[in-house]
Structures are given as structure tokens and as C-alpha cells.
Design a protein around this nucleic acid. Structure first.
Lengths: 186, 186
DNA sequence: TCGCACATGTAACGCGTTACATGATTAC
DNA sequence: GTAATCATGTAACGCGTTACATGTGCGA
């Protein structure tokens, strides 16, 4: 029975960088959404569970109004749990790319519709590429001396190179669809 | 409340190619697992639901032993449902690439461990690439006149070009890790 | 005779998503 | 003043995965 829940590792991971609030963890994880998406609703319950198990601790920063902000830190036990997981081989990925499923069955609708889908994907790719390159530039200047930097750059490159390849694919696919369009018109 | 369930469209889609049994649908969907993974346990219940709603029909092929094999066909109503979905813009993908999450937090373990993970990914990429190229060759000879062919080739190319890009990334990442390794030894 | 492919299903369980609830502070 | 951001949580719901159950026919 292989546990599928990886949310706790994502949380332990960001806390291994430095202590922060649940809200900040959410924000951090949004920055890596191009390869890891995490649901908002999972963060707080998982954090509570991790605290109960002693993998993280927290300090409540009581603010003047009585509401509190919790700053979580990873414990030694938490670090062990994290590194144990990091050493394990990654389980295989299960992909679901909806727009490719639509394209796969694209013969059921007009070429124009498929062209639109690919153009939409092309646009998204382009946006992503720009965003990732901006993050890269920021990291290079602001995290110059972090031991995490090389790892962060690698994952960013994965996104950037992947986007580049997808752009090239879009252009190729669009050409193929133009051909389909011309054939269907005859 | 956007419905997340896409299993029915995957099923309707394969039935739009030609009628087949639930088991055969499962097999067909396994062929596209590089961009769409479907759970075995979802097929039969979904198929039953689709039949109840009149989107598919089936003929029971009673075999000598009394056990039956159901051959499902898509109905006119089912085709409408499918094409309606095909026309809609695809919703954004939620990725979870576990090995990238490990790499992102890679500074917590030795470079060697990260190198192993990437080498494992490189191997999987290579295998995938070979498999997809084989499928491509088969399609080109066996589905020469199918109206689906251009669409199937496009999705295959997505996989092949993606694998190519990932291989290039692996080599780049491995070089970067060698550098990290040398620095940490000093 | 052993195992694999064919063939159809059910049940448990929990993860993941979305929406909801609440309220302070800050910026425009 | 009003909208966005910071901040922490809860609840509902259903999808997705895994394991289980059952049985035939065929090839090595």
C-alpha cells in the first residue's frame, strides 16, 4: 500500500528552507506550481497533523488583536522524514493533459477548433516561459549564495526547456492541422 | 462548479473510433498513458452510467459458457456530448512531478542521490521515446487511411519531442550536479 | 500445470478541490 | 471607502487508486 500523499513532503521541504507561516508556505508552493500543484485546503490540516506527530513545531506570534500567526519550523525528526523521502526513488508520474486528449479525438470536430486549442496552449506556454525566466533572473541576483540555488535553477530549467519544446511542437502541430484543413476543403 | 471528471470523455472518445468492450477500452487508454492515465476501477462504473444516460449502448455477446461480453457503441446523443466537450477550451493542467519536487529540495541530501534520481528519469525518458517511436511506425503503416491518423501523430509527437527535451535537460542537470559535487568536496 | 491474457465487476479509503467563514491591515 | 493581501481554518463531495473477487481459454 504505497502512500500517495506527498503534501507533507512539500510542506516539510519548504520549511527546510526556513521557518514560516502556513500562509507563506502556500505562497511558496504557488511559485513551483509549474511542476507541483498543491491545494489550499490541504495545507492547514496537514500542518496540524505534522505538528501532532512532532515533525514540525510552531510559535504563536500573538498579535495585539488576539489573533495569532503561527510560525512553523521543521524539527530534527521532520528533517529525518524529509531526507528519507528524498533518498527514495520517485514514483512514476500520472499525467493528464486534457488538451491532448481533445486533440487525440480531434477528428470528430473541425480542424479550426483544434487549431484554436493549440493556439491557446501556445499562448500559455509563452506566458509561462516569460514568467520562469523572470524568476530565474530574480533568483540569480537574490539567492546568489544559497546552497539551494543550483537545485532551484535546475527545476526552473526543466520548465523553461519544456516550454521551449512545447512551443516548437505547437508550430509543428499547427502546420499539420493546416494540411488537414486543406484536405477537408477539397 | 466545474466538473473535474473527464473519464467519461475518454471513454466516449475511444468509442467514437469504433465499438468495443470495456476491457478493450482499458487497453486503448493504456496506449495513451503518456498523456492520459485512467484508472481501471473507473471504466466499468462509468460505462454503466453512460449506458443509463443513453450516451452509449451495448450488445451482450452471449458466449457458450453463459458469461457475457458487452460490446459498447456510442450513440448520437453520446457523440453530441463528446463534440460539445471537444469544442470547449481545455481547463488548465495540474502537474505533480514528484522527482522535480525531490530535486527542488535536493540541497538537503548529497549530490549523488540527486544524480541517481536524474539518471533514473533519463532512463525512463529513453524507454518512452523508443516505445513512442515504435507506435508511430506502426500507426504509419496500419492506419494509413484513417481520418484519425494526423491527430494521433500529433499527440505522439508531443510525447516524442517532450522526451527529447527532457533528455537534453537531464544531461544539463547532470553537469550542474557534477559541479555541486566538486564544490562540496573542497 | 502454470501463468498470462481476456473479461467484468465491487468496495474501501483517502486525497484533492472548491466553497465557505472570518477578520485585520494596507494601499489606492 | 473599498479592494486586495495577509492570515487561519472547516466542510462537503466526489474522483482516483488499489485491492479484491471470479472465471475462461490458450500457449509454453
Amino acid at each position: 500500500m504505497p502512500k500517495t500523499n506527498k503534501t507533507l513532503y512539500a510542506i516539510l521541504g519548504v520549511l527546510s528552507i526556513h521557518p514560516m507561516s502556513g500562509y507563506a508556505i502556500r505562497q511558496e508552493l504557488k511559485h513551483v506550481s509549474f511542476f507541483w500543484s498543491e491545494s489550499d485546503g490541504q495545507i492547514y490540516p496537514t500542518l496540524a497533523k505534522l505538528a501532532k506527530e512532532g515533525l514540525v513545531t510552531f510559535k504563536s506570534m500573538n498579535k495585539a488583536d488576539g489573533r495569532d500567526k503561527k510560525i512553523y519550523s521543521i524539527t530534527k525528526k521532520g528533517m529525518e522524514e524529509l531526507t528519507d523521502w528524498l533518498k527514495e526513488e520517485a514514483t512514476t508520474r500520472n499525467f493528464r493533459i486534457e488538451f491532448l486528449l481533445k486533440l487525440f479525438f480531434g477528428a470528430n470536430v473541425s480542424p479550426e477548433i483544434n487549431i484554436e486549442h493549440i493556439q491557446a496552449d501556445r499562448y500559455q506556454c509563452k506566458m509561462l516561459q516569460v514568467k520562469l525566466q523572470e524568476i530565474k533572473a530574480t533568483l540569480l541576483s537574490e539567492e546568489k549564495d544559497s546552497p539551494h540555488l543550483p537545485f532551484w535553477l535546475m527545476t526552473l530549467d526543466y520548465g523553461i526547456m519544456g516550454a521551449e519544446a512545447r512551443l516548437a511542437w505547437c508550430d509543428k502541430a499547427l502546420k499539420a492541422l493546416e494540411k488537414v484543413k486543406n484536405l477537408s476543403k477539397k
